[in-house]
């Protein structure tokens, strides 16, 4: 069953995410990035940051909090989801110690060749309400009755 157009405009209350030093290190290691600004406070300070900062796509971690909630509410399992595109606009780098608040909005639902295309906007702010990053994602959701069961 396609996703009902009535869900367009759904907005979730801001979801908190606290950025920890070890998560940033783990993420940088996972993408194989040896840049010292992700692990050494002194290297980050040389660049004018107060503490260690995160790689740009680290933003997906707080963003996923809200996307997961949305998918849960729509009854969509991740095996049916294909990430079509992703865009981030940054006001500043995410830094260790940030207490982020991410507001998720389902901007658009379109049906394309039997699939649902969802446009999801996530507004990532710090605990002072200052904008940190905006994410715009398009997800394709395949219908549930198609193909063999995944698990």
């Amino acid at each position: 069953m396609p996703i009902a157009p009535s869900v367009v405009g759904w907005t979730y209350p801001a979801q908190p995410y606290e950025v920890s030093r070890e998560k940033v290190r783990e993420f940088a290691e996972a993408i194989g990035d040896p840049n010292p600004v992700y692990v050494e406070t002194s290297a980050a300070r040389e660049r004018g940051h107060t503490d260690v900062v995160a790689p740009p796509t680290f933003a997906m971690i707080p963003v996923m909090r809200g996307v997961d909630m949305l998918m849960d509410d729509l009854g969509v399992e991740f095996a049916r989801v294909v990430h079509v595109d992703q865009r981030f606009t940054y006001a500043r780098a995410i830094a260790v110690g940030d207490r982020l608040e991410t507001t998720t909005t389902l901007d658009q639902v379109r049906q394309v060749a039997g699939n649902d295309l969802l446009t999801i906007r996530s507004d990532v702010r710090d605990d002072r309400g200052e904008g940190v990053c905006e994410s715009l994602a398009t997800l394709l959701v395949r219908p549930e009755d198609e193909g063999e069961p995944g698990d």
Binding site: G48, P56, T57, Y90
Partner: peptide
């Protein structure tokens, strides 16, 4: 990383 303003 702070030098990256937009990335899609």
């Amino acid at each position: 990383p702070a030098a990256v303003i937009e990335y899609g």
